[in-house]
């Protein structure tokens, strides 16, 4: 019996699952009757099965580490970014500290000019604020970067930042100042003063609401 033309091509098309329906019928019919073609087809199938049987091998251990070690160095920026991403709490804390220190010092540095709370009857002479004798100041006085000399009476709190209050001791005891007397000179004292001021303001805001 003569084998049809293209029978080997049909075998390959069959193995690639790309055979036409009618060619497949022809191939199957022929294989049932032709031992020569049958064994040829079996040899093809066997070769494929053998190739596929080669067990799946794995990459050597440390493969990934070796690849990573040979990669060109990454940009520093990314490493820093990744560190921040992996340590959110530390990042937040350090950011907070940086911003806080920055704002505190900038406020401190900004305040090197002489200034005083505007009140009537106050006399200013060479960075010294004088409460003249016989005068009564109603309200608080804050002096920045200057001294305060009290000869009259203050009905309120007195605060001097980076300066002195002249004759404070006897004036306070003599009741010339009815409120609190505060002198602020050092940075830390000043920060403490700021915190107290802010919290006092907060408290008063809440009290106002009530």
């Amino acid at each position: 019996m003569k084998c049809p033309d293209n029978i080997v091509l049909y075998m390959h098309e069959y193995l690639d699952e790309e055979i036409e329906e009618q060619d497949e019928q022809l191939l199957k019919k022929h294989l049932q009757t032709c031992p020569k073609c049958q064994s040829y087809f079996h040899e093809l199938e066997k070769a494929i099965a053998l190739v596929q049987s080669t067990s799946h091998i794995q990459a050597p251990s440390n493969f990934t580490e070796n690849v990573m070690a040979r990669l060109p160095k990454e940009k520093r920026r990314v490493g820093v970014n990744r560190w921040f991403r992996h340590h959110p709490l530390l990042t937040a804390a350090s950011l907070f500290i940086i911003l806080m220190t920055g704002s505190v010092f900038s406020t401190w540095n900004k305040d090197h000019e002489f200034s005083v709370t505007k009140q009537p009857n106050l006399v200013v002479h060479n960075n010294t604020v004088i409460v003249p004798e016989g005068e009564i100041i109603k309200g608080d006085i804050t002096v920045r970067n200057g001294d305060l000399q009290i000869e009259g009476k203050v009905e309120g709190d007195v605060t001097v930042i980076n300066g002195q209050i002249n004759g404070e001791n006897y004036l306070a005891s003599a009741g010339h100042v009815t409120g609190e007397i505060k002198e602020v000179n050092e940075v830390f004292e000043w920060i403490w003063y700021h915190i107290k001021k802010t919290s006092k303001e907060l408290v008063s805001v809440f009290q106002d609401k009530e």
């Binding site: 390959h12 193995l15 040829y40 040899e43 093809l44 066997k46 070769a47 494929i48 053998l50 190739v51």
Partner: peptide, 11 residues
Amino acid sequence: REALRHQLRNV
């Protein structure tokens, strides 16, 4: 496949 068939048929 043909080459493999030839090489592997006696395995």
